[in-house]
Amino acid sequence: NKFNKEMRNAYWEIALLPNLNNQQKRAFIRSLYDDPSQSANLLAEAKKLNDAQA
């Protein structure tokens, strides 16, 4: 399933972002599970926040 693969990839990328705190990571990951079709958008948002907090 395409969404499962995208979701799994996004999950690990988000989990490993160095500048997000655990609460932020959990919120993004919860959103991934709520709507796997938004994986790419959620990952992009997480990366933006990660960069902003660098």
Score class of each variant (00 low, 15 high):
Glu6Cys: 12
Ser31Cys: 08
Asp51Phe: 10
Phe3His: 15
Ser39Cys: 09
Pro36Thr: 03
Gln38Gly: 11
Arg26Thr: 14
Pro18Phe: 03
Asn9Ser: 10
Met7Gln: 05
Ser39Asn: 06
Asn50Lys: 01
Ala44Leu: 13
Lys5Phe: 01
Arg26Trp: 14
Asn21Thr: 11
Tyr33Ser: 04
Arg30Val: 14
Asp35Leu: 04
Ala44His: 13
Ala44Tyr: 11
Gln53Met: 12
Ala15Arg: 15
Asp35Thr: 12
Ser31Leu: 09
Ala10Phe: 05
Ala46Ile: 02
Ala27Thr: 12
Leu32Gly: 01
Leu42Glu: 02
Glu6Asn: 03
Gln38Lys: 10
Leu17Gln: 04
Arg26Val: 09
Pro36Asp: 02
Ala44Glu: 05
Ser31Asn: 12
Tyr33Val: 13
Leu17Met: 13
Asn19Ser: 06
Arg26Asp: 12
Tyr33Trp: 15
Tyr33Leu: 15
Gln23Ala: 13
Ala52Gln: 10
Lys25Ile: 03
Pro18Leu: 07
Ile14Val: 05
Ala54Met: 07
Phe28Asp: 00
Met7Phe: 11
Asn4Thr: 05
Ser39Phe: 06
Gln23Val: 07
Ala52Glu: 08
Lys48Tyr: 10
Lys2Asn: 15
Ser31Asp: 12
Asn41Ala: 08
Gln23Gly: 11
Leu16Ile: 05
Leu20His: 00
Ala54Trp: 06
Ala40Gln: 09
Pro36Ile: 08
Ala15Ile: 15
Gln23Pro: 09
Tyr33Ala: 03
Ile29Gly: 05
Trp12Phe: 14
Asn4Ser: 03
Lys5His: 02
Leu42Cys: 04
Ser37Tyr: 12
Glu6Met: 07
Pro18Gln: 05
Phe3Asp: 15
Asn1Glu: 11
Ala27Asp: 12
Tyr11Trp: 06
Ala44Asn: 11
Leu16Trp: 15
Asn21Val: 06
Ala44Arg: 07
Tyr11His: 08
Lys5Ala: 03
Gln53Pro: 09
Leu43Met: 05
Glu13Pro: 01
Ala54Tyr: 07
Asn21Asp: 13
Lys5Arg: 03
Ser31Tyr: 08
Leu49Gln: 06
Leu43Ala: 12
Ala27Pro: 02
Lys48Val: 07
Asn22Arg: 10
Tyr11Arg: 12
Asp35Met: 06
Ala10Ile: 06
Pro36Tyr: 07
Glu45Gln: 11
Leu42Phe: 05
Lys47Trp: 04
Lys5Asn: 04
Ala10Lys: 02
Met7Ser: 03
Phe3Trp: 02
Trp12Gly: 09
Leu32Arg: 00
Gln24Lys: 04
Leu43Arg: 15
Glu6His: 03
Met7Asn: 01
Lys5Val: 03
Ala52Asp: 08
Asn21Trp: 06
Ile29Asn: 02
Arg8Cys: 15
Asp51His: 10
Ile14Ala: 00
Ala52Tyr: 10
Leu43Gly: 02
Lys5Cys: 14
Lys2Arg: 08
Lys25Val: 03
Ala52Ile: 10
Ser31Gly: 06
Ala15Leu: 15
Ser39Tyr: 08
Gln38Asp: 10
Ala15Pro: 02
Leu49Lys: 10
Lys25His: 01
Ile14Leu: 12
Gln24Asn: 03
Asn41Pro: 03
Ile14Pro: 00
Asp51Met: 09
Leu32Met: 04
Asp34Cys: 11
Leu32His: 00
Asn9Tyr: 14
Lys5Gln: 07
Ala52Trp: 06
Glu6Phe: 02
Ala46Cys: 03
Ile29Met: 05
Ala10Tyr: 02
Leu16His: 15
Arg30Trp: 10
Lys25Met: 03
Glu45Arg: 13
Asn22Lys: 13
Glu6Lys: 03
Glu6Ile: 06
Lys2Cys: 15
Ala46Met: 01
Met7Cys: 03
Leu16Thr: 08
Gln24Leu: 05
Asp34Arg: 08
Ile29Ala: 08
Leu43Cys: 14
Ile29Ser: 04
Asn50Met: 01
Gln24Met: 04
Ala40Ile: 10
Asp34Leu: 12
